[in-house]
Design a protein around this nucleic acid. Structure first.
Lengths: 283, 283
DNA sequence: ATCGGTGATACCGCACAGGTATGACTCGGG
DNA sequence: CCCGAGTCATACCTGTGCGGTATCACCGAT
């Protein structure tokens, strides 16, 4: 199976629409149709169910979509890491660490400081990105190591070490009745009509889901909207250090505990990554 | 990057010889040369160092070899699992479990029996294979779940659960002076001229490494050679249940402890695999 | 100096990816 | 009830590029 065929199939399987998929791939629709049927013939397995004006995945198609995404990621990672290693060898070496913008900043600062003091340490480029993006950067080879947060990020297929576990707090505008309490439950927060949960853009297409909450695209926007009394959020308690006086954090006793982990691709043979992880575990 | 290019590169990187690699790939040498230089040009990175009569990997080439193998495995796994899912849907369903021939047979029997009694259990095809092969079967999609042994098998990139930990014993011919002891150290076993360690064929090319020990290709051969007083082996103590009277097992106190684990690919969404793992953990 | 063996280059033919035009079919609207 | 819009499939053409053969340039051993 060639990557081209697999890319084509993944596009169709995601769009469930040949013409749109062809447009996304930058080719015409007929060659795409042909490529897919050829793939089905070669595998000996029907992947798509073409019925009245709609395309759906067969069971086998669903499997190929999943496994195929992982395989394409691995191909991309191989290519990307090869390029990066050459660039590193050619001068300004370094590894790339990906982390969610605004999360675990204190821990990260300590880690980078400690690692920088190690003998043989290399330059660490920090890549801040939106939620759920770090994991992808790691899988596609654009990052060597990432700081993730269980259970929010998917760590399937990555090697991880746990660094820190903490509870979560509700961040509320000062003066709101709920902010006077000294602890809360999740049920207290789901149905607060005047503070609906904010909506983030979908990672896939950048559109916002429906709902009453305000649309946000960054952490600072969200904090400002809380200050303005328009929404609330639930976040790991370490975020307290970044809150202004006009925000109040109240522990949410039944929210899932959040574990900060350091993660890297399972086949990594990078010495700097190993050093960085060892340093992180000593903190 | 197309899988064809990557397959070509991996072949050359493994052989470090264009003509042999071309032969292995079933193509002529000139197209292979061209494909590799084209790959290097596309990546913008030299992968191979061609100097006086010898080909060596550059640092980038070594990375691409490693990452590329994983990527090719993932591609193969995607293809294989898709085929298998279709076959399973078409009638005789089932999952494939890979394990080393002759290892953990008791545990495996208990597991299969317990799983078979579960509601909703499917047929489990057991694939016995040589040492170090299970892992590959799992990575390339020919198996859904495997029973592996730490630290012998590499579990990087697989999800695992530990099932059982045990020490190791030396298996000796009855009557040999060492068999009279009630415990041994590894040092006692490395330099026993009359019982040199047996040699297994290499997984890569099937050739035997050099050495004084007898060549074997199966567990039963090895046991017979021990009976004949020609070699010895060190194995997990659970192998005792399969030994004849003319073999003696003596604990090796400083041999690494062996952990039997059940492993599956990290992206598995197979319900039967999850059930099987859950059953295994209850044993 | 010669020969065997290395990888690179030159050239050719054919398979196949991709484009355009069009068909078969299904739905919705006038 | 038919027409038009929209779906994916088919037919045909074209050009790229993969693979093969022949050959070269280079190096080392004899």
């Amino acid at each position: 199976m060639e990557t081209r065929e697999l890319r084509y199939f993944v596009a169709v399987a995601e769009e469930l629409h040949f013409s749109r998929a062809a447009q996304r791939l930058g080719i015409a629709q007929p060659p795409l149709s042909r490529a897919i049927s050829q793939l089905e013939r070669r595998l000996g397995v029907p992947l798509l169910e073409r019925s009245n004006r709609s395309v759906t995945l067969t069971e086998a198609g669903a499997v190929l979509l999943h496994e195929g995404r992982a395989a394409l990621d691995a191909m991309e990672a191989a290519e990307e890491r090869t390029r990066r290693v050459a660039r590193a060898a050619a001068g300004q070496a370094g590894i790339v660490l990906a982390t969610k913008a605004g999360a675990s900043s204190e821990l990260l600062a300590k880690l980078l400081h400690a690692y920088g003091a190690e003998p043989g340490s290399v330059h660490v480029e920090v890549l801040l990105c939106g939620p759920g993006q770090q994991e992808r950067l790691l899988r596609t080879g654009r990052a060597d190591v990432a700081v993730l947060h269980h259970p929010f990020d998917d760590t399937a297929g990555l090697d991880v070490e746990e660094l820190h576990t903490e509870g979560q707090v509700a961040v509320l505008p000062a003066g709101h009745p709920l902010s006077a309490k000294d602890q809360l439950h999740l049920d207290d927060l789901t149905d607060v009509p005047e503070l609906p949960l904010a909506r983030w853009p979908s990672a896939a297409d950048g559109t916002y889901p429906d709902g009453p909450g305000p649309e946000v695209e960054s952490h600072s926007q969200l904090l400002q909207l809380i200050s303005l009394g328009r929404t609330l959020m639930v976040a790991p308690e370490s975020c307290r250090s970044q809150l202004h006086d006009d925000l109040v954090a109240v522990p949410v006793v039944d929210a899932p505990r959040v574990t900060t982990v350091i993660a890297w691709p399972p086949h990594s043979r990078s010495r700097p990554v190993a050093d960085l992880v060892r340093t992180a575990l000593r903190l």
